[in-house]
Amino acid sequence: MTGERRKFTRKSEDARREALIAAALELIAEGGPTAATVRAIAARAGVTPGLIRHYFDGKDDLTREAYRAMMAAMQADNTTVLGPATADPATRLAGFVTAALRPPVMDPHRMGLWAGFIHQVRSDPDMAAVHAETYLRYRDLLESLIADLGRHEASALRGLAIACNGVIDGLWLEGSALPAAFAPGELERIGLMAVGAILGLDLLSRHPAEEQP
Score class of each variant (00 low, 15 high):
residue 32 G to N: 10
residue 116 G to L: 10
residue 84 P to F: 05
residue 49 P to W: 07
residue 44 R to G: 02
residue 21 I to V: 15
residue 80 T to Q: 09
residue 69 A to F: 08
residue 81 V to L: 04
residue 37 T to K: 02
residue 111 M to I: 02
residue 128 A to F: 03
residue 37 T to M: 07
residue 86 T to H: 12
residue 37 T to I: 10
residue 33 P to F: 13
residue 132 A to M: 12
residue 136 L to Q: 13
residue 22 A to L: 06
residue 87 A to P: 01
residue 59 K to F: 10
residue 56 F to R: 07
residue 121 V to F: 03
residue 134 T to A: 11
residue 76 A to Y: 03
residue 61 D to A: 14
residue 47 V to I: 14
residue 115 A to V: 09
residue 119 H to D: 13
residue 92 R to S: 02
residue 129 A to T: 13
residue 37 T to C: 08
residue 119 H to R: 08
residue 50 G to E: 08
residue 87 A to T: 10
residue 51 L to M: 12
residue 47 V to T: 13
residue 47 V to W: 02
residue 123 S to I: 04
residue 89 P to E: 05
residue 93 L to V: 05
residue 43 A to P: 00
residue 135 Y to N: 08
residue 83 G to Q: 09
residue 55 Y to R: 04
residue 85 A to W: 00
residue 94 A to N: 09
residue 69 A to W: 12
residue 99 A to P: 01
residue 63 T to V: 15
residue 73 A to N: 09
residue 137 R to Y: 00
residue 62 L to E: 04
residue 89 P to Q: 07
residue 27 L to D: 03
residue 70 M to Q: 14
residue 113 L to F: 03
residue 123 S to C: 05
residue 67 Y to N: 01
residue 34 T to V: 13
residue 84 P to W: 08
residue 84 P to L: 05
residue 108 P to E: 02
residue 109 H to V: 11
residue 99 A to M: 14
residue 76 A to F: 08
residue 23 A to Q: 08
residue 100 A to H: 11
residue 123 S to G: 07
residue 22 A to Y: 01
residue 126 D to E: 14
residue 24 A to F: 08
residue 31 G to Q: 12
residue 44 R to L: 04
residue 45 A to W: 06
residue 95 G to D: 08
residue 37 T to P: 04
residue 122 R to Q: 09
residue 43 A to M: 03
residue 36 A to P: 06
residue 132 A to Q: 14
residue 103 P to M: 10
residue 58 G to M: 05
residue 108 P to A: 06
residue 25 L to Q: 15
residue 91 T to Q: 13
residue 104 P to V: 11
residue 75 Q to P: 01
residue 97 V to I: 13
residue 37 T to F: 03
residue 99 A to W: 01
residue 114 W to M: 12
residue 70 M to E: 11
residue 53 R to M: 09
residue 26 E to T: 15
residue 29 A to V: 02
residue 83 G to P: 02
residue 37 T to Q: 02
residue 55 Y to T: 04
residue 57 D to P: 00
residue 63 T to L: 14
residue 62 L to M: 04
residue 101 L to D: 07
residue 66 A to C: 04
residue 105 V to Q: 07
residue 130 V to N: 03
residue 73 A to I: 01
residue 116 G to N: 05
residue 103 P to T: 08
residue 104 P to E: 09
residue 109 H to K: 03
residue 98 T to Y: 12
residue 28 I to H: 08
residue 48 T to V: 11
residue 34 T to L: 10
residue 49 P to H: 09
residue 47 V to H: 01
residue 49 P to L: 12
residue 89 P to V: 08
residue 109 H to N: 00
residue 97 V to F: 07
residue 102 R to L: 09
residue 63 T to R: 10
residue 108 P to Y: 04
residue 41 I to A: 05
residue 22 A to D: 12
residue 45 A to M: 11
residue 72 A to G: 01
residue 42 A to F: 02
residue 114 W to L: 09
residue 62 L to K: 07
residue 115 A to C: 06
residue 126 D to P: 00
residue 91 T to S: 11
residue 76 A to G: 14
residue 100 A to I: 00
residue 67 Y to M: 13
residue 61 D to T: 13
residue 81 V to R: 00
residue 55 Y to C: 10
residue 32 G to F: 14
residue 29 A to S: 15
residue 38 V to P: 00
residue 75 Q to E: 15
residue 135 Y to Q: 14
residue 99 A to T: 14
residue 117 F to V: 06
residue 91 T to Y: 00
residue 60 D to S: 15
residue 78 N to Q: 15
residue 86 T to C: 04
residue 79 T to H: 13
residue 58 G to E: 01
residue 98 T to S: 15
residue 129 A to P: 00
residue 42 A to T: 06
residue 128 A to G: 12
residue 58 G to K: 05
residue 118 I to C: 02
